[in-house]
Amino acid sequence: MPIGRVGRPHGLDGAFVVEHASDDDRRWQVGASLHVDGAPATIEVSRRVGSGRRAIRLDRPVERGAELTVERSELPSPEPDTYYAFQLVGLVVVDEGRDPLGRVIAVHPGAANDNLELEDGRLVPLIEDAVRSVDLEGRTIVVDRGFLG
């Protein structure tokens, strides 16, 4: 699972700013393991820099733009009725009459709420009134058709 991307260098000690850094501070602790473009690495230095951004140094050199990831198995279980975005991508969206509306191709963050993007480009706001239920095992999301954008 992506947790950030190698950004510009920060300081003279080999650290870099993490772009699109995960908000989970446990990911950035000294000694934490992660993957850089699929290869394992360990965090040696971690600090907050301007505007609260995260800067880290790893146990090996990395290229700017490289993706920082962790294994899905390392993610904590979400709270009840909450989901990771990756869990929703690919699910079939149906209306309350079970008529198919399409598959989720992306989850977009928003200022007020996130939105599910269906394969035809329509958006469904991730709010309680619009999303009636999510069944991960059944691979379906039931929505109120009136909220399709």
Rank of each mutant, 00 (worst) to 15 (best):
residue 99 D to W: 08
residue 44 E to S: 05
residue 81 D to H: 14
residue 63 E to T: 03
residue 101 L to A: 11
residue 51 S to F: 10
residue 78 P to E: 06
residue 118 L to E: 01
residue 27 R to M: 11
residue 35 H to C: 07
residue 77 S to P: 02
residue 77 S to V: 12
residue 106 A to H: 10
residue 117 E to H: 06
residue 4 G to V: 01
residue 110 G to C: 04
residue 22 S to Q: 05
residue 6 V to A: 04
residue 99 D to F: 10
residue 114 D to S: 12
residue 15 A to H: 01
residue 26 R to M: 12
residue 73 S to M: 11
residue 145 R to Q: 11
residue 99 D to P: 03
residue 94 V to D: 06
residue 90 G to H: 02
residue 99 D to G: 11
residue 135 D to M: 09
residue 54 R to W: 00
residue 16 F to I: 00
residue 72 R to G: 11
residue 49 V to A: 00
residue 56 I to H: 00
residue 84 Y to S: 07
residue 149 G to A: 15
residue 93 V to T: 01
residue 46 S to L: 14
residue 107 V to I: 10
residue 116 L to D: 02
residue 24 D to I: 03
residue 88 L to W: 02
residue 26 R to G: 13
residue 83 Y to F: 13
residue 19 E to M: 10
residue 145 R to M: 08
residue 70 V to G: 03
residue 100 P to S: 11
residue 57 R to S: 01
residue 96 E to I: 11
residue 10 H to M: 04
residue 111 A to W: 09
residue 118 L to K: 03
residue 129 D to M: 12
residue 12 L to N: 09
residue 61 P to C: 04
residue 94 V to T: 04
residue 107 V to Y: 01
residue 44 E to L: 12
residue 13 D to M: 08
residue 50 G to Y: 06
residue 43 I to K: 07
residue 103 R to S: 13
residue 36 V to C: 05
residue 33 S to W: 14
residue 129 D to W: 06
residue 19 E to K: 14
residue 81 D to Y: 09
residue 48 R to C: 10
residue 147 F to L: 10
residue 1 M to G: 12
residue 132 R to H: 05
residue 98 R to L: 10
residue 15 A to T: 02
residue 128 E to G: 04
residue 102 G to F: 07
residue 57 R to M: 06
residue 41 A to D: 05
residue 37 D to E: 13
residue 100 P to M: 13
residue 98 R to S: 15
residue 115 N to L: 15
residue 121 G to R: 14
residue 31 G to K: 08
residue 110 G to I: 01
residue 6 V to S: 03
residue 4 G to H: 00
residue 123 L to C: 13
residue 40 P to I: 02
residue 12 L to A: 14
residue 16 F to C: 03
residue 83 Y to C: 09
residue 52 G to L: 12
residue 47 R to F: 06
residue 39 A to W: 07
residue 124 V to R: 01
residue 72 R to L: 12
